[in-house]
């Protein structure tokens, strides 16, 4: 029995166990938790291949799991007609004065980094800003920007495929677009409070 077989054996046992849990579970919200467990074992099955390709396949696998979780939990809230908790914003002085400068620093640093990780850093800045300051939602605007950035990113991919000699343009395009996309997507999380949609 080589390493791959041993790993496969253990993982499949884990898959079976997690499915037994799913079989026995009756409560809707607990099912979501178990589903997360099951998905993780699926990722381990990919990891077992242990090449660069496996590394590249894990990211899509992870993203599929996260996005389905996001959608299902929202569907659950809708299905159960759960009210959205309302709370008063905390009144701390530093939360009114600090956000601009912190956000500015984080966004600038994110732009220097560029790309996916840059987007994440800049996005955290904006999340912070919106959480502290923003009581008005700007979903439409952020969504539009995010959508266009996503489309540009896909365009860059097609440039790589069809016109490889223009790769520099594609690199710049995709780097910039993903920066904007990730930033706006994360910023949207900051605006997810029952404020006014402007």
């Amino acid at each position: 029995m080589d390493f791959y077989q041993a790993g496969l054996f253990c993982t499949l046992v884990c898959v079976a166990i997690s499915f037994v849990a799913l079989l026995r579970e009756r409560d809707d919200i607990h099912k979501i938790l178990i589903v997360d467990l099951v998905e993780t074992t699926g990722l381990v099955l990919i990891c077992l291949v242990a090449t660069d390709l496996a590394e590249a396949l894990i990211l899509p696998g992870l993203v599929v799991g996260i996005s389905e979780l996001l959608m299902l939990t929202e569907l659950y809230i809708r299905k159960e007609n759960l009210p959205i908790p309302s709370f008063k914003p905390i009144k701390i002085e530093v939360m009114r004065t600090a956000p601009p400068i912190i956000t500015f620093v984080l966004v600038v640093y994110g732009i220097i980094l560029s790309g996916f990780s840059g987007g994440a850093v800049a996005g955290i800045g904006l999340v912070f800003y919106f959480l502290c300051k923003g009581y008005e939602e700007r979903f439409e605007l952020l969504e539009t920007i995010s959508g266009y950035a996503w489309a540009l990113w896909i365009v860059a991919f097609f440039i790589f495929m069809i016109l490889p000699q223009a790769w520099l343009i594609a690199v710049m395009l995709s780097g910039g677009a993903i920066l904007i996309k990730v930033t706006t997507k994360m910023a949207l999380i900051g605006t997810m409070r029952e404020g006014r949609n402007v």
Binding site: V15, L45, L48, E68, M71
Partner: peptide, 17 residues
Amino acid sequence: GIVAMVATTFLFGGASM
């Protein structure tokens, strides 16, 4: 939706095997 989520384990597992 729950079934669809769980099914990705088998899809990705099958492809990676």
